[in-house]
Design a protein around this nucleic acid. Structure first.
Length: 291
DNA sequence: ATGACTGGCTCGGCCAGA
């Protein structure tokens, strides 16, 4: 089972990059952030393309800003849009959607930016993270928290810590809020896989930052222990940041082995596998043809 | 360099992003 999370920076603008990426990478579950589309507009643009590829879709969008989505080929149950009792700025923004996919509670999140330390938006960011922590703590067993967290967990996750001094994304309070979320029992699966490497997920569009690999790791996949133990691979899909018309974020990819109990979500048997069921067919129904 | 790029809204610039 492959789970991907990607801040696409406008789903509409990313369409020519997103669909080929989907066909190339074939993720089973996709968390999207910054769709910047109301649900109706997202559906208009994507419903047919995603349905033909076998994805169910859960949306929490709004016009102009923010917007998150969850796509799944392995079931999409108990969808929750937003964070229950979460804060707003001033209204509750479209920054969270979660659902159960293939037996795992998956969260697609776009954490508030924070703008300036100690600003109203910064305090909102911290309150939002605490509300998220409470939501995840209520159901922490089999979970993966994915998305643009807008926090670099450590100084190793920014190209130059000095360049970020006094800015958001690296302040102690933000890192403590992220640590409190992880203290629910979540493992940073990309950092666990690449403990000593330079691994970024975001590069500013300006000044050739991607070309020079001057970026940040702010897009995270945080998995509870039963999920983290199934991780076979976890990486940043840098290819998606290259070329023409990319997002400024790259996808984060997580490949899971099957669950020990074999529960990888609902399976619909192909018609040929059903075979003739003596006594179950209604009278007069045509028999299934033998192979 | 107090910039650089991109997108939304709207059609001229400003806001937001991180």
């Amino acid at each position: 089972m492959r789970i991907a999370t990607w801040n696409v920076n406008s789903a509409k603008q990313r369409l020519p990059r997103f669909l080929p990426w989907l066909d190339e990478r074939q993720p089973d579950v996709v968390c999207l952030q910054e769709t910047k589309l109301a649900n109706e507009a997202f559906t208009e643009l994507f419903e047919a393309e995603l349905a033909s590829r076998g994805y169910e879709v859960a949306l929490n969008g709004e016009v102009q800003w923010n917007g998150v989505a969850l796509l799944s080929k392995v079931g999409l149950d108990d969808v929750v849009a937003g964070i229950p009792d979460g804060p707003g700025f001033p209204h509750q923004e479209a920054r969270a959607v979660s659902a159960t996919c293939g037996g795992i509670r998956v969260h697609s999140l776009y954490v508030p930016n924070g703008r300036e330390p100690d600003s109203d938006h910064y305090r909102y960011k911290l309150e939002w993270l605490e509300a998220l922590r409470k939501q995840v703590a209520a159901d922490p067993a089999n979970v993966i928290v994915c998305g643009d967290m807008n926090i670099a967990p450590t100084d190793a996750d920014v190209f130059d810590p000095a360049a970020f001094a006094g800015h958001t994304h690296v302040t102690p309070a933000e890192r403590e809020a992220l640590a409190a979320l992880q203290a629910v029992g979540l493992h940073d699966v990309v950092r666990d896989r690449w403990p000593n490497e330079t691994v970024f997920s975001y590069w500013d569009y300006r000044a050739g930052m991607f070309h020079k690999n001057l970026g940040m790791r702010i897009d995270l996949a945080l998995a509870s222990k039963p999920v983290a133990e199934r991780v076979k691979a976890a990486w940043i899909d840098r290819q998606a940041r290259k070329g023409t018309g990319p997002s400024d974020h790259a996808p984060v990819m997580v490949d899971l082995d099957e669950a020990p109990d074999g529960d990888i979500g609902p399976m619909v048997p192909p018609p040929s596998a059903a075979g003739p069921r003596r006594g179950k067919l209604p009278q007069g129904s045509p028999r299934t043809k033998k192979a």
